[in-house]
Simulated scan of single mutants.
Amino acid sequence: MARRGSSAAMAAGALLAQLMMLLCAPAAAELPRLQHPAKNDGSLSLLVVGDWGRKGTYNQSRVADQMGEVGDQFNIDFVISTGDNFYEDGLTGTDDPAFEQSFTDIYTAKSLQKPWYLVLGNHDYRGDALAQLSPVLQKIDSRFICMRSFIVNAEIVDFFFVDTTPFQLKYWTHPKDDHYDWRGVAPRKKYINNLLKDLDEAMKKSTAAWKIAVGHHTMRSVSDHGDTEELLQLLLPVLQDNGVDFYINGHDHCLEHISSRDSPIQYFTSGGGSKAWRGVFEPNEDKLEFFYDGQGFMSLQLDHNKAEFVFYDVNGNVLYQYTRTANHLQPSGGYVSEK
């Protein structure tokens, strides 16, 4: 199958893949760290999409087309995936045709031929999780850079990617008819304790202007899955103690912005990459700024002093904008709910 995108972008992806393999040695005590330079003016532009891998169905292709348009407009530096990259049960192996059918063949726009940094979602863990972490996939499409937990340092911002699926106890104790690939993760308690320790140490060392955590599962959500109690109890204190500005996730198939009432942290859900329209709305204790029960994605533009978030629907319409500066919170836009 023909490769798409510029040779420069592919070479950059291949270089990052090689670095990833070096940094993922089992004996490493620190989280793998990748370097991604900001633009010459010090700014950074990216897209965020989650819960997408359905071989183009459920409007995945339409969302991808609009991502290409917005990506070109902003000359994006990379794309973040918040997980559930392949439905319903991840990949069967590194030779699973679903990889190209749901990724390479869908995100074909020139602007999207940049590195994709991905975390695993719960549906990814239901298949061969190690396949998504394998460097073999980068030989098929070098954009695909997936690890359990890692850091992308982009000069003005440190992105802390967190493997959130092992936190949810029900996946271990009540998996129902699903099988979860816990190779390299079990035992759960030790894995989570080590991860939290590594995250805390890395965040304390960060000198970036912005600190952003990325995971699959919701921390706060008013949609189908709601809040994830294990993350609120275990992960949130680490984020708050280290001054993390934003937590970005997928899992719920919608677009959301929720403000914490007891800290500066802001929660953003971008899980509208394909199947959506759950028809669920359950408020929580924090402040809901925006909710859209439908398909779409998010852009994020950053410089040293300002972060600008924009949500788009499946037609590329701007649904909501939010800007945060060093000392001000400036939401703009409105509440949108569709069922």
Rank of each mutant, 00 (worst) to 15 (best):
L47N: 00
G71L: 09
A9Y: 12
L255Q: 07
F159Y: 07
G271T: 02
L44D: 00
D252G: 01
Q35K: 12
A11N: 08
I140Q: 07
V244T: 07
H257I: 11
I248N: 04
S7A: 11
N59S: 14
T325A: 06
P37Q: 09
E69M: 15
G50Y: 02
A17N: 10
T94N: 08
Q240L: 08
E100N: 13
P32L: 01
H253I: 08
K55V: 13
L196E: 05
Q132S: 08
G71H: 09
Q132E: 09
I212D: 01
L137C: 01
T269E: 04
Y171T: 02
N315W: 12
W182A: 03
F78R: 04
Y320V: 01
N194G: 13
L288I: 01
F160Y: 11
F74D: 00
V310R: 15
F297I: 03
A154E: 04
K189L: 09
W172F: 02
H179K: 14
R126K: 13
H123G: 04
N317W: 07
P175Y: 04
A131L: 03
G243C: 09
S299W: 07
A27C: 09
A2V: 14
S223N: 10
T165A: 10
G243Q: 12
R278V: 11
M1N: 13
D293Y: 10
D181W: 04
D72R: 15
T165D: 10
Q138I: 01
D158H: 13
D181Q: 03
R143H: 05
M203R: 06
R148P: 05
H36M: 12
T173H: 02
P187Q: 04
P237D: 10
